[in-house]
Simulated assay, not measured.
Amino acid sequence: MTKWYRWQDWATVAAGLFTAVAVLWTRQLNLSTTCMLVFGGLLVVSGLINLAMPGMPAMEYVQAILAAGLVLSPWLGTYTGATGAALTSWIAGGVALVVTAAAIKPSTDVRHAYRVSH
Protein backbone atom coordinates (compact mmCIF):
# COMPACT_ATOMS: atom_id res chain seq x y z
CA MET A 1 0.00 0.00 0.00
CA THR A 2 1.24 3.46 -0.83
CA LYS A 3 2.44 5.70 1.99
CA TRP A 4 0.42 8.82 2.84
CA TYR A 5 -2.56 7.53 0.90
CA ARG A 6 -5.06 5.72 3.13
CA TRP A 7 -8.16 7.85 3.72
CA GLN A 8 -8.92 6.19 7.06
CA ASP A 9 -5.70 7.50 8.58
CA TRP A 10 -6.28 10.99 7.16
CA ALA A 11 -9.75 10.94 8.77
CA THR A 12 -8.19 9.97 12.10
CA VAL A 13 -5.64 12.78 11.83
CA ALA A 14 -8.46 15.23 11.08
CA ALA A 15 -10.56 13.97 14.02
CA GLY A 16 -7.61 14.25 16.38
CA LEU A 17 -6.67 17.71 15.15
CA PHE A 18 -10.27 18.92 15.42
CA THR A 19 -10.49 17.58 18.98
CA ALA A 20 -7.26 19.26 20.06
CA VAL A 21 -8.18 22.60 18.49
CA ALA A 22 -11.79 22.47 19.74
CA VAL A 23 -10.60 23.39 23.24
CA LEU A 24 -10.38 26.94 21.90
CA TRP A 25 -14.14 27.32 21.27
CA THR A 26 -15.85 24.79 23.55
CA ARG A 27 -16.61 25.36 27.21
CA GLN A 28 -14.15 23.35 29.26
CA LEU A 29 -14.83 21.64 32.57
CA ASN A 30 -12.66 19.55 34.93
CA LEU A 31 -10.19 17.47 32.88
CA SER A 32 -11.72 18.22 29.46
CA THR A 33 -8.83 20.36 28.20
CA THR A 34 -6.26 17.76 29.22
CA CYS A 35 -8.21 14.80 27.81
CA MET A 36 -9.02 16.54 24.54
CA LEU A 37 -5.46 17.75 23.99
CA VAL A 38 -3.83 14.45 24.95
CA PHE A 39 -6.17 12.11 23.05
CA GLY A 40 -6.47 14.49 20.09
CA GLY A 41 -2.71 14.91 19.86
CA LEU A 42 -2.05 11.19 20.19
CA LEU A 43 -4.61 10.44 17.47
CA VAL A 44 -2.80 12.87 15.17
CA VAL A 45 0.55 11.22 15.91
CA SER A 46 -0.80 7.68 15.50
CA GLY A 47 -2.54 8.62 12.26
CA LEU A 48 0.67 10.11 10.87
CA ILE A 49 2.62 6.99 11.88
CA ASN A 50 0.04 4.81 10.12
CA LEU A 51 0.22 7.02 7.04
CA ALA A 52 4.02 6.81 6.94
CA MET A 53 4.13 3.04 7.66
CA PRO A 54 0.86 1.52 6.36
CA GLY A 55 1.73 -2.13 7.11
CA MET A 56 1.71 -1.94 10.93
CA PRO A 57 -1.50 -3.52 12.22
CA ALA A 58 -0.32 -3.18 15.82
CA MET A 59 -0.34 0.60 15.42
CA GLU A 60 -3.93 0.41 14.14
CA TYR A 61 -4.90 -1.33 17.38
CA VAL A 62 -3.10 1.36 19.40
CA GLN A 63 -5.02 3.96 17.42
CA ALA A 64 -8.30 2.16 18.15
CA ILE A 65 -7.51 2.19 21.88
CA LEU A 66 -6.78 5.93 21.72
CA ALA A 67 -10.06 6.55 19.89
CA ALA A 68 -11.96 4.51 22.48
CA GLY A 69 -10.20 6.51 25.19
CA LEU A 70 -11.44 9.72 23.59
CA VAL A 71 -15.00 8.35 23.51
CA LEU A 72 -14.78 7.44 27.20
CA SER A 73 -12.96 10.60 28.28
CA PRO A 74 -16.06 12.73 29.08
CA TRP A 75 -16.97 10.19 31.75
CA LEU A 76 -13.44 9.52 32.91
CA GLY A 77 -12.54 13.23 32.95
CA THR A 78 -15.93 14.18 34.44
CA TYR A 79 -16.85 16.70 31.78
CA THR A 80 -20.16 15.36 30.50
CA GLY A 81 -21.69 18.64 31.72
CA ALA A 82 -19.62 20.62 29.20
CA THR A 83 -21.84 19.73 26.26
CA GLY A 84 -19.62 21.04 23.46
CA ALA A 85 -16.47 19.39 24.77
CA ALA A 86 -18.27 16.13 25.51
CA LEU A 87 -19.96 16.00 22.09
CA THR A 88 -16.67 16.76 20.38
CA SER A 89 -15.00 13.91 22.25
CA TRP A 90 -17.80 11.44 21.58
CA ILE A 91 -18.22 12.26 17.88
CA ALA A 92 -14.53 12.65 16.97
CA GLY A 93 -13.62 9.56 19.00
CA GLY A 94 -16.43 7.59 17.37
CA VAL A 95 -15.35 8.65 13.89
CA ALA A 96 -11.73 7.74 14.64
CA LEU A 97 -12.79 4.38 16.08
CA VAL A 98 -14.94 3.47 13.05
CA VAL A 99 -12.36 4.48 10.43
CA THR A 100 -9.59 2.74 12.37
CA ALA A 101 -11.65 -0.45 12.46
CA ALA A 102 -12.01 -0.11 8.69
CA ALA A 103 -8.22 0.24 8.32
CA ILE A 104 -7.21 -2.84 10.32
CA LYS A 105 -7.86 -5.40 7.55
CA PRO A 106 -6.03 -3.43 4.81
CA SER A 107 -3.10 -2.90 7.16
CA THR A 108 -3.01 -6.61 8.00
CA ASP A 109 -3.16 -7.48 4.29
CA VAL A 110 -0.20 -5.20 3.55
CA ARG A 111 1.77 -6.77 6.39
CA HIS A 112 0.96 -10.27 5.18
CA ALA A 113 1.86 -9.45 1.56
CA TYR A 114 5.20 -7.99 2.70
CA ARG A 115 6.03 -11.10 4.74
CA VAL A 116 5.13 -13.44 1.88
CA SER A 117 7.29 -11.52 -0.63
CA HIS A 118 10.33 -11.34 1.65
Rank of each mutant, 00 (worst) to 15 (best):
E60I: 09
T83V: 04
Y114H: 09
G94H: 11
T100L: 06
V21H: 04
T83W: 07
T33E: 05
V71C: 12
G93R: 14
S73I: 06
A101I: 09
G16N: 01
P74E: 02
L76C: 14
L97K: 05
L17V: 00
Y5R: 12
G81K: 00
G47Q: 07
P57I: 04
P54E: 09
L51E: 02
G40P: 02
V23S: 05
E60K: 14
A64D: 02
W25R: 04
V110Y: 15
L17C: 01
S89R: 09
T19W: 00
V45I: 15
A92W: 01
G93W: 10
E60A: 14
V23A: 04
L66Y: 13
T78C: 10
G93D: 14
V110L: 15
F39M: 08
V44L: 05
G81N: 00
Y61H: 08
T100S: 10
G77R: 03
L42N: 08
P74C: 01
T108L: 11
W4F: 07
N30L: 04
L29G: 00
A101H: 03
R27V: 12
G69E: 06
V44H: 12
I49W: 10
V62C: 04
T34S: 11
D9S: 14
V21G: 03
E60D: 13
R6F: 11
A15C: 13
T108W: 13
A11W: 13
T108Q: 14
Y61D: 08
V95N: 03
G93P: 14
H112R: 14
G41L: 07
P54I: 07
G16S: 03
I91Y: 05
M36L: 06
V23I: 12
G55T: 08
L31H: 03
R27M: 11
L72Y: 02
V38E: 03
L51R: 01
Y79S: 01
A96H: 11
T100M: 05
W25L: 06
M53S: 13
T12C: 05
V99W: 11
P57F: 07
H118C: 03
L51N: 02
I104S: 05
D9P: 09
A68N: 02
G77M: 04
V98N: 02
A103H: 11
A14T: 07
L43S: 04
A113H: 05
V44F: 10
L70W: 11
T34F: 13
A64S: 08
L76Q: 14
G47P: 05
W7F: 12
L43T: 01
W90M: 13
